[in-house]
Design a binder for these strands. Structure first.
Length: 461
RNA sequence: GGCGGCGUAGCCAAGCGGUUAAGGCGAGGGACUGCAAAUCCCUUAUUCCCCGGUUCGAAUCCGGGCGCCGCCUCCA
């Protein structure tokens, strides 16, 4: 698998001598429900994980839950709630949302608060090595002590200094220095430390959780491209100052979800909660929507776009239900069809191997479906149905029943009876009544398809 | 201002030096049907924001514009 690495700005081969890929994806800060833009990395990197597994690799997938943070504290104060209780509540909602999005739970989802003693240890080590300093109960990382600072985000320390436009905290030795430990103000949650009560900074959380669970060098570290600076830059500075080793082999950053060209963000108010969008369009339409655009590019959200994704997913399910009713013995007539299929399979994987080109891979699926229809050969249809299901599996798509949910035996027989009676009406050319039945069933979610071999009923999901 | 990215048909979107410029949605025409739906067939970019350059050959590489976006604030 070749992937674009933010650090080197090149597409690089993901190597795994041990057969295990250790990947870390920045998770949510649990002060509110996640919005549909937050869901992009969760879905995209979940799919990447599954594709790596489908290629025979073991993946250890860690995604943190940031449950101490200024925003949580502020929100809790506004609502008169306990910050820990608020964080726990939204952590549970977050997991519920992952399920709604069809995202597999990570191997580990550590809450930051569990690791605070480890964070204190790490900060102490940075102090011991001269990479950090204490000011009035706060601890800062000294950016100048890490020569590689700025490499990830393509900034130079000098420029950042010149361009610093945020009010500089006078107590910092250098405007670029960032907080590792924040002393607690009255009323704020705190944990004990050698520098007094307080809480860890965000950048430190991720370093501790990732290296503790995955080791000092990660194969993949991923997140939204809005995290490149300062978050990931600061993580790298800490980790590499501490270990002297490469922190991350490949940095992956997904593009933003936009609304009319602007980033979707809580602060801009142009957001929709992930669960609401799933409710409106369904899990698979949302996944399809994300995977139909290359993961590094910006993606514009609109109801029309989701509608379109839903239609595309519906069409595939339509095909799968056609293919599914063909007896398993049916074989493709044309001997050349086999090689067409295996060529398509190779193409599918080649697209994914090439910087995780999911839109390219989905196009292969659509293409193969079109070809199967064209053949008008039940055997070919059946075989393509199987291939589509197998290939789409790692993308988390097209594994469901599609348009034929379980019905009770009685209901099925009743439907068959209605269809028979309607067939008689049509024979008698009583089309008015036959159409009325069709319309009524349609409004109940049962679609009738009249074909040369009679009528079939299909349940719309 | 600095750094990064994007601009391909009505819309969405692949493509990364040689392909007939994938695929989807939509639209139009036809087949099937009592009429529909579903499905099938055909049509829908001589051209990839603009201008130069490199090359036998450029949507793809280089230079310069134009437009849009992200980051530079603990934003996925």
């Amino acid at each position: 698998m070749r992937l674009y690495n933010t650090l080197t700005k090149k597409v690089e081969e993901l190597t795994s001598p041990t057969g295990t890929v250790r990947m870390y994806v920045c998770g949510p800060t649990v002060y509110d429900l996640i919005h549909i833009g937050n869901a992009r990395p969760f879905i995209v990197f979940d799919a990447l994980r599954r594709v790596l597994e489908a290629r025979g690799l073991r993946v250890v997938y860690v995604q943190n839950v940031t449950d101490v943070d200024d925003k949580i504290i502020r929100r809790a104060q506004e609502e008169g709630r306990d910050p820990a209780e608020l964080a726990l509540h939204y952590t549970q909602e977050y997991f519920a949302d992952l399920e709604r999005l069809g995202v597999r739970p990570p191997t580990y989802s550590p809450p930051a608060t569990v690791f605070i003693p480890k964070m204190v240890e790490l900060i102490q080590k940075l102090l011991d090595k001269g990479h950090a300093y204490v000011v009035d109960g706060d601890v800062y990382f000294s950016v100048r002590t890490y020569p590689g600072y700025g490499e990830l985000s393509g900034r130079s320390v000098e420029e950042e200094l010149a361009g610093a436009r945020v009010e500089v905290d006078e107590r910092k030795r250098d405007p670029l220095d960032f907080a590792l430990w924040k002393g607690a103000k009255p009323g704020e949650p705190w944990w004990p430390s050698p520098w007094g009560p307080g809480r860890p900074g965000w950048h430190t959380e991720c370093v501790v959780m990732s290296t503790y669970l995955l080791g000092e060098t990660l194969d993949i570290h991923a997140g939204g491209n809005d995290l490149v600076f300062p978050h990931h830059e600061n993580e790298r500075a800490q980790a590499e100052s501490l270990t002297g080793k490469t922190f991350v082999k490949i940095w992956l950053h997904n593009g933003m979800l936009t609304v009319r060209g602007e980033k979707m963000a809580k602060s801009l108010g142009n957001f929709y909660y992930a669960r609401d969008v799933v409710k409106l369009f369904g899990t698979e339409a949302v996944r399809y929507f994300y995977l139909s655009r290359h993961w590094r590019k910006p993606l514009d959200f609109s109801f029309e776009a989701l509608e379109e994704a839903k239609a595309a997913v519906g069409r595939v399910y339509n095909f799968l239900s056609e293919a599914g009713r063909i007896p398993p013995e049916a074989q493709a007539q044309d001997p050349g069809f086999r090689s067409f299929l295996s060529q398509a399979e190779r193409k599918f994987w080649a697209e994914l191997e090439d910087d995780f080109n999911t839109p390219g891979a989905l196009a292969v699926l659509q293409d193969v479906i079109g070809e199967a229809y064209k053949r008008a050969d039940p055997g070919a249809l059946r075989e393509v149905g199987e291939v589509v299901r197998r290939l789409a599996r790692p993308l988390g798509l097209f594994q469901g029943e599609g348009s034929s949910p379980e019905l009770g035996k009685l209901s099925e027989e009743l439907l068959d009876l209605i269809v028979d009676l309607r067939a008689q009406l049509r024979q008698e050319r009583n089309f008015a009544l036959a159409d009325k039945i069709r319309e009524k069933l349609s409004s109940l979610g049962v679609e009738l398809r009249d074909g040369p071999e009679g009528t079939r009923w299909i349940l719309r999901s």
